[in-house]
């Protein structure tokens, strides 16, 4: 699998996802600077977490208008797998590759802690190594992770099975009480229509090695390697 990580000046979980890709695939991904206008020929494009351009207007808004994102969009439309984590998810919604928007957490505070996620389906390039309905534990670390979309869009993505992950209890129940940010329907990640683009707020890349306390994020990268090999 050939992967590229797109870095912005304020990316800060680029190192985490690069380390995770190396740990799981044994290969160092290419690194594409935000001012570059061309992407190498790759099977996976990762938009990592961080604060891209400081996130002063809206999280991800300026990054979504950067030249490299035109290229990312074109590749996504051509079927290349695109994974946007945290700030990467925010960018993907701002650029329109994914529906909805990520608003400030409902308690207006940054939240960093382990949460449980229900894997909605296991038939996508990102989740093949999970079971549908499986509960995994990964951390969140964000201020703007409150997923929202208008009722029509929400009905569409739900009916099309485009919700990737939902916040849930350790037993797999999607309850408002454990929702860390107020996301509508407990949505933690969504796919595009073709399911080659995934955006999610939690950080599977920070749970790939037992020393990190848990390795539930590892199968996501293994799934990608298996699918894209």
């Amino acid at each position: 699998m050939r992967a590229a990580v797109v870095t912005f000046p304020g990316s800060n979980r680029d190192v985490d996802v690069i380390d995770a890709l190396i740990a799981v695939s044994g290969q160092r991904p290419g690194i594409v600077w935000h001012r570059d206008v061309e992407l190498p020929d790759v099977d996976l494009i990762v938009l990592p977490g961080g604060f891209s351009y400081g996130d002063y207007l809206r999280s991800g808004a300026m990054a979504a208008r950067s030249p490299i994102l035109r290229e990312v969009s074109a590749r996504a439309e051509a079927g290349v797998a695109v994974l946007g984590i945290c700030n990467g998810f925010q960018i993907l919604t701002e650029v329109g590759l994914l529906p909805g928007v990520l608003m400030a957490n409902r308690n207006l505070k940054f939240v960093c802690r382990d949460i449980h996620l229900k894997v909605e389906r296991a038939d996508t390039p990102f989740t093949g190594r999970y079971e549908a309905g499986q509960v995994i534990r990964v951390p969140v670390a964000h201020h703007d992770g409150n997923y929202f979309s208008d009722a029509d869009t929400l009905a569409r993505i739900e009916s099309e099975g485009r919700v990737a992950f939902r916040y849930c209890t350790p037993e797999g129940h999607v309850e408002d009480e454990i929702n860390p940010n107020g996301s509508i329907n407990g949505i933690a990640g969504v796919y595009n229509e073709a399911r080659n683009v995934l955006g999610l707020m939690p950080h599977p890349e920070d749970h790939v090695d037992g020393a990190q306390g848990c390795s539930d994020g590892r199968p996501m990268f293994e799934s990608l390697i298996e699918h894209l090999a």
């Binding site: 505070k109 960093c112 802690r113 990190q212």
Partner: peptide
């Protein structure tokens, strides 16, 4: 307090806040 601090970024935190000492791996 520490829920509001990103204590995991860099992916090397092996002892999180709340113990006797925090521990971060040397890459």
């Amino acid at each position: 307090v520490w829920d509001q601090y990103d204590h995991l970024v860099m992916g090397r935190t092996v002892q999180r806040p709340g113990g006797d000492a925090a521990v971060v791996r040397v890459p």
